[in-house]
Design a protein around this nucleic acid. Structure first.
Lengths: 132, 132, 132, 132
DNA sequence: GTGGTCTAGACCACG
DNA sequence: GTGGTCTAGACCACA
């Protein structure tokens, strides 16, 4: 479900943080769901357990996740729920502009960039229905 | 022209390498074009000159640019050599997935994220026609 | 009567151990007094019964309490044994330093921190006389 | 200047975090000051460098400190400056009440607790003038 | 030389 | 068995 690319120069912990937040934001993980254990996730992602524990710790401090001592780690909130609609819109615009700018650097037009997103949407839906 | 985001956990050198290759791949930089000097680029990007120099060195070893002593650094490779269609597609997918993941963290669905891009496209077109 | 702060990074067992010893040292618990049962205390403090049991066990080994099978756990040591004047002074210093450090983090000087305590003292006295 | 007590059950990283914030809040460290290097502080406090690095990282995320890549770590802001006067007062009251409650557990009256703080103030002033 | 990331592996606190 | 803390030590990015 979550995946890490060790050849990506982005630090592993940052990739995992983004992956978990994204899974929550998209509804693949829901409030109250239990995350895999630190050690299990470490095995699955072929990453050191400390790296996973570090991410869990940061998500806890951020209020995204709640850890119950000796029990496990649970989704606590959709991170976005703390944001005002205005703030959300502003941040989304920043993300969109970064995406378009990076795509332009690749020589990809806005229309192509949007078309590509539709492809990704289709790909995700297939994965999701595979999983069910 | 090129931009670096110091708050992105991706290492500066990886960001710069990618930015230069993208500019070549997209045709914004063409074979024979001269790059800014190491020091100039370091100042522009607010990055240490050693970091820029290392990226130039790696690009030279990769055959993407050519350094003529006392003259400057020039684009050597054709866009096709610098970035295959396959590479381009792979990178675009990485960008799209990052955009979708970050949008999901904001609680924004894929469909909304795409719709938002359309808005941005419309906004850009207006700005462009305003400017003419 | 005893209190535990789950958000304090100090381990629960250390908090509980300290709380019980303090209560004895201060005379709030006296020799011969019966402690609540492990389970009752676990419920009251919202802590796992094993954690309470372990603290009781350590206190027993230290000679501070005595467990009479099927009857309950009783305070055994005299206050003087449980907490020497020296210990008391050392602990008070630790508490004071923590208070001053946390106050400093809020940008509050030592003098202001002391002044604030005087206010609290006044407030408490009012409450107390109100209650009478 | 900063000190850690390895026998205190409070985690080392929490002790260090409090110590640094306190030093900033009390003015012993000022905006723009450079902190000792991670490795130096690790040696001084007889703690692993990773533990220090972890605290620096958390302080950076909290905006208390700024790290300049390859240069060092600098005080960025007095953490308290982000707080409203109201908020500060509320938190100070919580701290004071905790101190008084813990002191009461030790059998120490409010007046004694205040007197003890005055002692600590005197002790700190001596240390400070020794250092000059 | 600076800080940052990651690993391996020990030991602790908690349920 | 759960997560949390700490250590030792490697290697990387940056100035």
């Amino acid at each position: 479900m979550l995946s890490i690319d060790p050849s990506d120069p982005t630090p592993l912990y940052a990739q995992l943080d983004r992956a978990i937040r994204s899974a929550i934001g998209s509804g693949r993980l829901r409030v109250g769901d239990r995350l895999p254990t630190v050690r299990q996730m470490a095995v699955d992602l072929r990453v050191n357990a400390n790296t996973v524990a570090r991410v869990f710790g940061e998500l806890e401090r951020a209020g995204v996740v709640e850890t119950r001592r000796g029990v496990g780690t649970f989704i606590r909130a959709r991170p976005a729920d703390a944001l005002s609609a205005d703030d959300r819109h502003r941040r989304l615009t920043a993300l969109a502009d970064r995406y378009l700018a990076d795509a332009a650097d690749l020589g990809v037009s806005v229309d192509e960039a949007i078309a590509h997103l539709r492809e990704r949407r289709a790909a995700e839906r297939e994965e999701t229905s595979d999983g069910q």
